[in-house]
Design a protein around this nucleic acid. Structure first.
Length: 571
RNA sequence: CGGGGCGUGGCGCAGUCCGGUUAGCGCGUCUGGUUUGGGACCAGAAGGCCGGAGGUUCGAAUCCUCUCGCCCCGACCA
């Protein structure tokens, strides 16, 4: 049965107002236009119009991933926990993973590397079987501590997740590059303004990763970007700010009393020490062992960078007790010289070879000055550990960086052999040698695509769909359909002619006042509205209203279908 | 998990501080009529264990305790 897209019957529950709790414009519009309804925190139902848009996005995803050789799967959300134990990710995922209570050994999958690797291990046994791109569009479950911003962060969401299997690292580079291009095509087709940043691989593991981002105040990531094209997630971003360096005639190290100086700002203020000549000590407990991290002045330690330096995410800031026990002083007076116990000290790159530094003396209320890190300490580990700040010179050409909030739409990873090693997914190469499969993983949040599009395409009246995502090509607005038989006749004709022309039409045949109909049409945001009223009909005309430009145009009845059809070839 | 806020007909809200007729208002819904180029109008009607449990009281939407749910900020985030 063909569904009748007549508003008198079709379920599009539009709303004039939504609860004040809904804050993001896209969220508000998705609810008002009858696309979605919330069922629980972070759980949404997709209503018919929303579902149409969802399917449009999924079709674009399919087309573009198919183009790079993707083969579509449908993997189960219910997973045996065993395969997750194999990769150690039950622990890594922690609370984020949903566990089934009344059936031991089952979990709800938050992603599908394990299942893919499981099947690859079963059947991909020869270098001849690769490369391979396996993907699916499927529901993920993640027990987010705090769902927010409508469909942007849910506990259940749809993801297009793809996985590449390669026999060589060069092959992985190609698979990765293919996905990079496919992703760019996808977001361009969707009409979303995005940018790509270098990103941290986090608990996914792997060599390289990039994120496809949309700039937005609602974003949860910070990105460092410059006009010259530098773009990185702040988790991994660097700048080419000059190192502290050395001063001439640096005298001997000397202790001095700083009874009221607890912070770098205090030192700067009370003793007129330049901020960059201060070395701040941050103490972390890393798997129960203390590590002192020396940072320049007020530079902020970047925990993502720290994680990759340490090779573990099991660390936390030390408590006051621990500080005193290991260093001899409480916070505010800790430094690399004269430590009470032997503690591993690592330092930010900016401090390499620096002298003339001021730092805590590991004695409450005292600091050292004239510290020469090379002369007075044994620090041998220097890493990039700092968080980039707004305005610092970018690494490409030194122009200042901006820091923007962004929503992560997609993420591409070179996984390498993290999963194939853990799960024993191996193949025989041309020499008959056994090797782990080289993998990549690539994800797009489907709901986020829609929310981000709306976030970039709306006005005071509603959504402004584009050609690719619009749920309908034409919205027929029949005025006074109850009484005006001529209007009804013309609308019916348009409705069937549009269908015959391969265009999807929505027909507002409700017995409502014109204001209601116009407002709903603008809210729904179909690019072309065909307004049919007795007045214009008397001259053999109807009005076309273009939602994107706001233009209105009187046209002859017989030209309507052609004009609408042509319109979609021009936008 | 820490901080803040909210929960009252289908939807959006008031009432809660300071307990006291029959719990209001707007929208929507139903019936009848008028109206039809920008959220119409008239008349009538239906629809509420005031999130839940316990307590205080002669009496609780209102006060107390517990609990569940939802939103926001923070923490976290593959």
């Amino acid at each position: 049965m063909v569904i009748d897209m007549k508003l008198s019957k079709y379920f599009i529950p539009t709303l004039k107002e939504v609860t004040a709790e809904v804050q993001m414009p896209s969220h508000k519009l998705m609810v008002r236009s009858g696309m979605v309804r919330q069922l629980a925190a972070g759980v949404f139902s997709w209503l018919p119009v929303g579902h149409i848009v969802l399917k449009k996005v999924m079709n674009i995803l399919r087309e573009e991933i198919d183009k790079i050789g993707g083969q579509e799967f449908l993997l189960p959300a219910l997973n045996p926990i065993d395969i997750w134990e194999e990769t150690n990710r039950v622990e890594a995922m922690g609370d984020v993973m949903f566990h089934i209570k009344n059936r031991d050994g089952l979990i709800l999958a938050p992603t599908h590397e394990e299942v893919i690797t499981y099947h690859a291990r079963q059947h991909v046994k020869s270098y001849r079987d690769m490369p391979m791109v396996w993907y699916q569009i499927q529901t993920k479950f993640r027990n987010e501590p705090r769902p927010k911003s409508g469909v942007l962060r849910g506990r259940q969401f749809i993801m297009k997740d793809a996985y590449s299997l390669d026999s060589t690292w060069e092959g992985l580079d190609i698979s990765y590059q293919n996905h990079y291009e496919a992703y760019s095509n996808i977001f361009n087709r969707c009409g979303i303004k995005f940018f790509v940043v270098g990103a941290s691989s986090g608990a996914m593991g792997g060599k390289q990763s990039q994120e496809f981002m949309v700039e937005s105040e609602a974003g949860e990531d910070l990105c460092v970007i410059s006009d010259s094209g530098y773009a990185a997630n702040i988790e991994v971003a660097t700048s080419n700010i000059a190192p502290v360096g050395r001063i001439d005639n640096n005298p001997e190290i000397e202790i001095f009393a700083t009874p009221n100086a607890k912070s770098i700002d205090d030192l700067v203020e009370q003793f007129a020490i330049p901020e960059e000549r201060c070395a701040k000590s941050v103490v972390y407990m890393v798997e129960d062992k203390p590590v002192i991290i020396l940072m320049r002045g007020n530079d902020e330690l970047n925990e993502n960078k720290l994680e990759s330096v340490l090779g573990t995410n099991v660390f936390r800031a030390a408590t006051s007790d621990e500080l005193i026990r290991f260093t001899g002083a409480d916070g505010g007076s800790i430094g690399p010289v004269n430590l009470k116990t032997k503690v591993r000290v690592i330092a930010d790159n900016l401090l390499k070879d620096a002298n003339g530094m001021v730092s805590g003396a590991n004695q409450d209320g005292f600091h050292y000055k004239n510290i020469d890190l090379a002369r007075d300490t044994q620090i041998s580990e220097f890493y990039d550990l700092r968080t980039v700040k707004e305005g610092e010179p970018n690494p490409i050409d030194g122009t200042p960086v901006r820091i923007v909030k962004a929503i992560e739409l997609g993420h591409i990873f070179k996984l390498g052999t993290r999963y194939s090693d853990a799960m024993g997914a191996t193949f025989l190469d041309a020499d008959g040698k056994e090797n782990p499969i080289i993998m990549g993983s690539y994800g797009i949040g489907v709901e986020r695509v829609i929310a981000c599009f709306i976030e970039q395409n709306y006005d005071d009246y509603g959504i402004k769909w584009n050609k690719e995502l619009t749920p309908f090509h034409a919205h027929i607005v029949g005025l006074n359909t109850k009484k005006a038989e001529d209007v009804r006749e013309v609308c019916d004709k348009f409705y069937s002619d549009l269908k015959a022309a391969g265009l999807d039409a929505l027909y507002d045949d409700r017995d409502d006042s014109v204001g209601v109909k116009f407002n709903d049409a603008d809210l729904l945001g179909v690019p072309v509205q065909i307004v049919v009223g007795s007045k214009n009909l008397a001259n053999g005309q109807v009005e076309l209203k273009y939602r994107l430009s706001g233009e209105k145009q009187l046209v002859k009845i017989k030209d309507v279908i052609t004009i609408v059809k042509d319109y979609y070839t021009t936008i």
